Simulated assay, not measured.
Amino acid sequence: MRELCGFEIEPEVRKWLDDLSDSDFKRVDEVAGLLAEKGTELGGGLGGIDLREAGVMVGYHTRWVRPEAPAEDPERIAIREALAFGKALYDRRTALGLSVAQLAERAGMTEDDVECIEEGGTAPTVPLLRLLAAALDADVRLTPGHDVGSLWFEAHAA
């Protein structure tokens, strides 16, 4: 088994990646890219290592060795928006010291629904943003772009 900068990809993981549908692979690729590029900003313990530069994002999985996907790919944009939404929700919830259960109760949702959003599995819709902003006593802020940081919840002015 070859190592890539101290990271080892097990055969089971390689097989799992190879067996993913194109849609699921895009999701994994976007999350891996986000972690590789912004891991330390997201609270990860990567110690400033850029995994793409380190070569971890290439190698065993041949689909990682390819030209960059067009930035306009609607499916990739939707994935990035869902990830940004999830991070924004997590950041505001933890800033308020709320548990997943407490936020779910405030919003009239299930804990699974809240966890799914925080994991980047739910697209941000206007009704959902309004519901969660009310539960978080916050306003929703958006900036141009689709990446993490392009959406956040901001506390109401006192």
Rank of each mutant, 00 (worst) to 15 (best):
I79N: 05
K15M: 03
I117M: 15
V100Q: 02
R106H: 01
T94D: 14
P70Y: 07
E72R: 07
E119V: 05
D19V: 00
V58C: 06
P124G: 05
D139N: 06
R2H: 01
L98R: 00
Q102L: 12
D91V: 08
A134Y: 10
L89G: 01
L132R: 09
V148N: 03
E111H: 00
L132K: 04
L136A: 04
L128C: 11
L96F: 04
V31K: 12
V140L: 01
A138I: 08
D18V: 15
L142P: 07
D19N: 05
R63K: 14
E119H: 03
R106T: 11
R66G: 04
P127R: 11
A36G: 04
G47N: 06
E118M: 09
G44C: 14
R27V: 07
R93I: 13
A157T: 06
F85H: 05
G33Q: 09
A32N: 06
D22L: 06
E111L: 03
D24K: 03
V126P: 10
G39D: 02
P11C: 03
A54F: 08
Y90F: 12
D137I: 08
R63H: 10
A78Q: 01
K87F: 06
A101E: 13
T94R: 04
L132Q: 00
V140S: 05
A158C: 11
V126M: 15
E119P: 01
E115D: 15
A95D: 01
A82M: 00
F7P: 12
M1W: 02
A123Q: 03
G120A: 14
L20V: 02
E105T: 14
V148M: 01
A69G: 06
T94V: 07
R76K: 11
A104H: 11
T40P: 04
A69S: 01
A155N: 09
E53K: 08
R80F: 10
D91Q: 14
W152H: 13
E81W: 13
G48M: 09
G47D: 07
G149C: 01
G39V: 02
R106P: 00
D139Y: 04
I77Y: 13
W64L: 03
A84D: 14
F85A: 08
T122N: 12
G39C: 15
R63V: 11
D19C: 05
A32C: 00
E105M: 06
A78P: 01
E3Q: 13
M1R: 00
A155W: 10
E105V: 10
R141Y: 12
M109R: 01
L42T: 03
D50A: 13
A95G: 08
R130C: 09
K87Y: 11
D22P: 04
E30D: 00
V58S: 06
E3A: 12
L35P: 08
F7Y: 15
E41W: 07
L83G: 02
H156N: 07
R141Q: 14
A88G: 03
R130W: 13
G97C: 13
G6Y: 03
V114G: 10
F153W: 08
W16S: 12
A69M: 10
G45A: 15
V31Y: 05
C116I: 02
